[in-house]
């Protein structure tokens, strides 16, 4: 049996955590913005595009996660 490379495994776990946890963070942030945006759109449909934009703003967080994951995996 080939001895598993513990270091490489840890790197993979780190990259996974970077994406997974930032994904969670994004989800939590988008949850409340999304709820408010849906409410606002229900009252005034012309708010739709602005609501959509505001809802996706926290997505940058998970993009950061991806960037970090790439840095970890690439190093």
């Amino acid at each position: 049996m080939v001895a598993p490379d513990v270091g490489q495994g840890l790197i993979a776990i780190g990259a996974g955590l970077a994406i997974g946890l930032t994904g969670l963070g994004t989800g939590i942030a988008e949850k409340s913005i999304g709820a408010a945006a849906v409410g606002a759109t229900a009252e005034n449909p012309s708010f739709f595009s602005r609501g959509l934009i505001m809802t996706v703003i926290p997505e940058t967080i998970v993009i950061f996660g991806i960037a970090i994951a790439f840095l970890i995996l690439g190093s």
Binding site: E59, I63, I66, A67
Partner: peptide, 12 residues
């Protein structure tokens, strides 16, 4: 800088 990295979403 965050805006720049934001374009990584295309690849992702």
């Amino acid at each position: 800088l965050a805006n720049v990295i934001s374009y990584a979403r295309l690849a992702a």
